[in-house]
């Protein structure tokens, strides 16, 4: 009888440890993927001055679009919290989108090696931001599944863990960048 009780106790203890570790692992994964988004957004912002420099000589009449890009970048650099960064990052993305659309009209610019390199680099970063976001939401999904399913739901209430929110794409980023000629 006593052996059974001890065995049961060990099992319960083991379950507590395993679930605790799973919560830790999964929330670490969330933090990690969050910082990955941050890294990519920062990389993009860092490339903007280079881009502005490389096009300065070519695009003289497009001040509006260029200032839009600079403004979005500035907003990103001064953003205080992560949500502000994501929002500013989305603005920067759409500003860059319209900028590259306009750049199509400048054949000399499109022949510029440096510009092409930056364009490729920024396109790749855009993909990486999307992938980082996807991984973040995937991580949230696993975490939330753990929180909501049985028996995880029991441990979640014991450890005081609750479901986390998905990363929403800001409204304005969903709109297709507007191009005016």
């Amino acid at each position: 009888m006593i052996f059974w009780l001890i065995g049961l106790g060990v099992l319960v203890l083991l379950a507590f440890i395993i679930y605790y570790n799973r919560f830790v692992t999964l929330s670490n994964r969330i933090d990690n993927s969050l910082s990955q988004i941050d890294v990519q957004l920062r990389k993009r912002a860092d490339l903007v001055p280079n881009l502005i420099n490389s096009v300065k000589g070519y695009v003289k009449h497009e001040r509006g679009v260029m200032s839009e890009v600079t403004k979005a970048r500035k907003e990103f650099m001064t953003a205080k919290n992560f949500e502000g960064k994501v929002k500013a990052g989305a603005q920067l993305q759409s500003a860059l989108g319209s900028f590259f659309a306009i750049a199509e009209n400048y054949p000399q610019l499109k022949a510029n090696e440096n510009f092409l390199h930056l364009q490729q680099e920024l396109a790749a970063i855009e993909d990486k931001v999307a992938y980082a976001r996807q991984h973040y939401n995937d991580s949230i999904l696993s975490y939330n599944n753990l929180c909501k399913k049985f028996p995880g739901v029991m441990f979640a209430s014991i450890y005081g863990k609750s479901v986390k929110k998905y990363l929403e794409i800001p409204q304005e980023a969903r709109a297709v960048p507007k191009v005016e000629f």
Binding site: R29, N32, Q40, Q120, A124, D127, K128, A132, H135
Partner: peptide
């Protein structure tokens, strides 16, 4: 092989 690196970096991010 810039494209190769971009693909690998993207996939490393999305797979963790």
């Amino acid at each position: 092989h810039r494209m190769l690196y971009h693909a690998a970096e993207g996939m490393a991010i999305s797979s963790g």
